[in-house]
Simulated assay, not measured.
Amino acid sequence: MSGEPDALAVVNQLRDLAADPLNRRAIVEDQGCLSGLILFFDHPNPQVVYSALLAVRYLAECRSNREKMTDELGMMLSLQNVMQKGTSPGETKLLASEIYEILQNSSSAEAEQAEAAASCRKKAQFFMGSTNKRAKTVVLQIDGLDDSARRSLCEEALLKIKGVISFTFQMAVKRCVVRIRSDLKAEALGTAIASTKFMKAQQVVKGEDGSEIAIPFQEDSDVVVEQNINLPDYLPEDESPSQEQHKAVTRLGSVQDGVSWLSTAANFLSRSFYW
């Protein structure tokens, strides 16, 4: 039993793999992984549910995946259940409604797309209030984002902010793309990054000519950062299955190794139908 991966470890590994665009089709085509992620939507640990939703959100970014994802047994119903569940955190409901809208629109005619989008937005408004009608994306250029240790500091800082939905790091260019609620100010992200004492963030925006402009956040900003409390503990990096690179889906190298890990995950998911 000691060698058996737990639900959080497995779903976090799938989330990390799904973050890479080159892995998304393989995960959806693998028998067991997509259906397993759907099962995680009903897991009692809210962190497992959120991580599974984030993995599915990444997978839905690949247009060729959307039809199969929409047709997957239980996908749409499970997303609706998350949106309607009274105990689901606000960010979790918003992420579920966003995925639902993407998949619904991909399988409908134009008229049906508009109706589905309006329906999903109404659901998000009903459960989250008028201040959270939409999410927005903020691109951060982070000075000092040099290694995995600094990345972990950023993750911890961003996870504490109430209103952060998801984030993706682009380590090669020292950037972080953050999805936040529309009522959350971007300055709150800059304040959180600055609180690490090792890094400083700038917001990347498009200029009138289409070029990128990095705008520094005010160091003496008086923006109040509302924090999440009682967050579940995240797995340490050195214990995460993502470090076992010989078992992960990789850009180069043996495809069989990637399939082997996905099969292992699928077997775990099939054995974990009940929690």
Rank of each mutant, 00 (worst) to 15 (best):
E110M: 10
V49M: 07
Q47S: 14
D71M: 15
D143F: 04
R57W: 11
M69K: 03
E187D: 13
M76R: 10
S97I: 08
L22N: 14
C176I: 04
M83E: 09
M76L: 13
L269A: 14
R134H: 15
A201D: 00
L94K: 06
S64T: 14
Q227L: 08
V249Q: 08
A117Q: 11
Q218K: 15
F268R: 00
G3S: 14
L184G: 01
V82A: 03
S148I: 09
A26L: 10
S240C: 08
E212F: 05
G207M: 09
A60E: 01
G36D: 12
N45C: 13
D143L: 11
E115W: 08
S119A: 15
G163V: 02
L79T: 01
N81C: 01
G36M: 03
F217G: 01
G86C: 05
G129D: 03
F167I: 00
K200I: 11
Q227E: 05
A248V: 05
F41G: 04
K123R: 09
E239M: 13
D220Y: 06
N267C: 08
L145F: 05
S97R: 07
R181F: 06
E110T: 04
E112V: 05
M171D: 02
L140S: 03
G3W: 10
A201L: 02
D183N: 15
S240G: 01
I193A: 00
K206V: 02
Q170M: 11
S2H: 11
E98L: 10
A109K: 09
L189P: 00
L235H: 07
R181A: 09
L184V: 15
E237K: 09
V82M: 03
K247R: 10
K200M: 09
G129E: 06
E219L: 13
D143G: 09
L73Y: 12
G74L: 06
T168Q: 13
V204L: 12
A214L: 06
L189K: 01
Q84T: 12
G32T: 10
Y50P: 02
A192C: 02
K68H: 08
A188P: 05
S240K: 04
N267I: 06
V255T: 11
P236E: 09
P232V: 03
G207L: 05
T196V: 00
A9M: 04
R271N: 06
M75I: 09
G190Q: 07
R15K: 12
N267G: 11
A186Y: 01
I38R: 07
Q47A: 12
M1F: 09
K247Q: 11
E219A: 08
K162C: 03
K197N: 03
L159F: 05
A188V: 01
E155Q: 12
N81K: 14
S263C: 14
Q227D: 03
S195F: 02
D257I: 13
P216D: 08
S148F: 02
Q141G: 07
E61V: 05
Y234M: 13
Q170K: 03
E226W: 05
L158D: 02
A118C: 09
A124N: 15
S106Y: 15
I99V: 14
V259N: 12
K185W: 09
S254P: 02
D30H: 15
G144Q: 02
R179L: 14
A149G: 06
A26C: 08
Q202A: 10
E244M: 11
K93I: 10
L158N: 01
N65L: 13
K122W: 01
V205P: 00
A186D: 11
R150C: 03
D20S: 12
A157N: 08
A265S: 09
